[in-house]
Amino acid sequence: MSAGAILASLLRQALPACRLLDLGLPAAPLLAWWPEALCGLAEPALLPPAEAALLGRFRHGPRRLPVFGLDPAGDAAVLAAAAGRPEAPLLLALPGAIPSALAPAVEAGALLLRHGRAAGLPPPPGPGRGRIMLLAGPVARIERWDLLLPPAAVEPVFARLHDAAQGLAAQLGGGRAWQIGGRLVTPGLASLGMLGIGAERVPPLRLPGAALWHDLPGVPEAEGLPLGAARRLRLLLGGMPARGAWLRLRLQGLDPARPPALLLDGVRLEAQLRAEGAAHWLEAPARMRPGQASIAGLALPPGAPEAAVLLALEFAA
């Protein structure tokens, strides 16, 4: 799962204008590392009803966009938001087949990021596409993805991805911790690998409160996500690497005498409250579970003030 974090970090730098729709739920491995990303399901019929009900709670951004794939009206709103800006091409991250509702977007030239080998699959509809093979993750568990994009974009995007990989490696243990290699095979075909050596390294996750997927009735504001009168909050993080780190929520407007509880995947964590300026960090050691989207939770005790605002979320050392 750490491949998703690496890939998302590289692609965000190489394709900064793109709007990502990660259709990898119930895992969604790229979502957490791409703060403005939309998310959804490629095959909602396979999802158990309880998981569908859970994912159906979440909304994102000022337009309260839902998870794609659960409701036709919601899907239309997501597509309108995702494809609404010509200067921001749509990048679809797909675990498998292309959902029929997305065929028009694919025909219109959306970029595709397909898990596994795309070489043997029938070409997607629409304009011809070049391919960058991407290999990422620890050397013991390498994941293969294919980025399908306009042929003319292969060379410049490959170059930007390569630069991004070098920069990310420098942040995460240096060149000795990574094998980075790749080449431009033809003008429309390239490959790039960023493989971790030794301990698994993942970029720290730091998300502003306003960018989080949440189940509150309101909308985020510039400073964060106001809880209003809500006593509970769930946050959809997406698929996370199976590793231990500190889960932290930065909150404003708390009463330290009535500290909230922090939950991960529905279970309360042993959390502590730490003041920092006018805000507080609510933090606990946590271990993410692979294979499913992680969900953080916050519960305010009776008598806690109603003016709390979630400023940020971190999952880091």
Binding site: P48, A50, E51, R234, G266, V267, G297
Partner: peptide
Amino acid sequence: AVLDPALAHR
């Protein structure tokens, strides 16, 4: 452990 019912199916 007390669980959030929305995630109890997991």
